[in-house]
Design a protein around this nucleic acid. Sequence first.
DNA 1: AATATATGCAACTAATTGGTTTCATATAAA
DNA 2: TTTATATGAAACCAATTAGTTGCATATATT
Lengths: 109, 109
Amino acid sequence: MRRDIFQAIADPTRRAIIALIAIQAMTPNAIAEQFDTSRQAVSKHLKVLHECEVLKQEQKGREIFYSLELEKMKELDIWLEQFRKIWESRFDNLDAYLAKIQKERKDDQ
Amino acid sequence: MRRDIFQAIADPTRRAIIALIAIQAMTPNAIAEQFDTSRQAVSKHLKVLHECEVLKQEQKGREIFYSLELEKMKELDIWLEQFRKIWESRFDNLDAYLAKIQKERKDDQ
DNA sequence: AATATATGCAACTAATTGGTTTCATATAAA
DNA sequence: TTTATATGAAACCAATTAGTTGCATATATT
């Protein structure tokens, strides 16, 4: 089964769980209260996120606290890097273009 | 049907198509040659990516050139921003911690 | 010790996905 | 004008997904 950060964030409920947990560690019950779906459905999402290593668990008695594994989010950031380079270079081109037409206007004077 | 950038990049073939097209605009046939799947399967991926506005089309005679819509990739970047803030603040904490123990060592001397 | 709470797993289901093959259409080349 | 090429759409299929309900287990609480 495909288990990666891209598949993990494809589902909107999972993205909401990630955003929720980014702020503070939470138990499955506390998380489930924030959604309209059943506790078990949330539990399945947590399983997926844990298998992708997006979340980590910490057992405290009968409770389990899930927290965000920031390193995994960085993987996404790294993938995005290639496009960031492109869009920055396009801005550079725009800068160069603006400088060019500005120079031309100056030359016209 | 859910059609967003997150769902668009969930599939590895689609991510490969995006990366391929980021470099230069390409026709469906040229793209399909890069993959093991059929031209029609690639065509379906292109349809999804186009519907998500990740790709844009430009018709030239009987050929269609697909190119990347960088703005859509920025949407992803914006979503990531919230986590970037967190991990930067954690690094700040690490910096503060390192400064603290360094000071303590100094005090011990 | 009996009961309540927190959690995960199994079995089932409807919808979606990613692929295939076949067919239709539009443009270019002979 | 006939033929070849580029592309998308339709119908179908197997696998996956996201949800449900019911059950099992472990830890607290009474």
